[in-house]
Nucleic acid binder design. Structure first.
Length: 224
DNA sequence: AAAGCTTTCAACCGCGTGGGT
DNA sequence: AACCCACGCGGTTGAAAGCTT
């Protein structure tokens, strides 16, 4: 929070909003609506910039703003969306009713970014009781699925026949079920987080996907 | 208890974009 | 085509709150 003060050049107030200012803004918008942010503060009797008013309204005063902790579901949506969209906070927030881009951005920097970078930089440090937090017993086993996921995805998108050898698993979406076959241990080079992001990008056409494979579940539920 | 450090998050700032002239 | 203006977005800041020593 910034301390209330004034901009010497413009005479406009800056810093934390008082309850009175909030009430003035709410009262004005309730009565006249939003017509021009830069002109509105003057008519509303506020010594604030239009930008400041807009920000205060959009992020805190607007009806239906959701406050409080983010749910696990919201966490997953943010992490998944961020892997696909990058720092497009507005686009990510649009997937979370009641959450603002600012709130999502802050939450990402305060909580979620660490979870991803922690694994990116030093996955070994997450091993506990001889097993990583991702459910794998060693790094090879943990990294290979990332690379493997793309193969799985590719197979389920392009093959529905018996052309794939070896093990069989099932991938289902809300409107279809596709059998696919793969050979997990054929995957030779370890994957990276970029591979994982690529996986989610390719997966996006399948909404509400349920994956009948432990490694896929590992990434969708535990890693994120 | 208090000093120092870290985290959180509301608010600000600069820039890009799009519409109007 | 060039300029202006309003708006929206994303990065950054810094006070307050929380935590640790």
């Amino acid at each position: 929070m910034r301390t209330p003060n004034s901009d010497m050049d413009t005479g406009l107030r800056k810093g934390k909003w008082s309850h009175e200012e909030d009430q003035m803004l709410i009262a004005y918008i309730s009565r006249y609506g939003i017509w021009n942010w830069s002109q509105m503060p003057r008519f509303a009797g506020l010594s604030r910039s239009g930008k400041s008013c807009r920000l205060r309204w959009m992020n805190y005063l607007k009806p239906n703003i959701k406050r409080g902790n983010f749910s696990n579901e919201e966490d997953e949506i943010i992490l998944h969306s961020h892997s696909v969209l990058g720092n497009k906070w507005s686009a990510i927030a649009s997937k979370l009713p009641g959450r603002t881009d600012s709130e999502v951005k802050n939450y990402w920097h305060a909580h979620l970014k660490k979870r991803v970078s922690r694994y990116n930089k030093n996955p070994e440090t997450h091993e506990q009781n001889g097993e990583s937090e991702f459910g794998c017993n060693n790094m090879d086993e943990m990294e290979q699925p990332v690379n493997h996921l793309n193969k799985v995805l590719e197979s389920c998108l392009t093959y529905e026949d018996d052309s794939f050898p070896s093990s069989t698993s099932t991938i289902t979406s809300k409107d279809q079920e596709v059998d696919f076959r793969y050979d997990y241990y054929d995957t030779s080079s370890p994957g990276t987080i970029d591979d994982l992001q690529s996986f989610w990008q390719q997966l996006s056409p399948f909404e509400n996907l349920e994956l009948g494979n432990t490694h896929l579940n590992m990434f969708s539920n535990d890693f994120f």
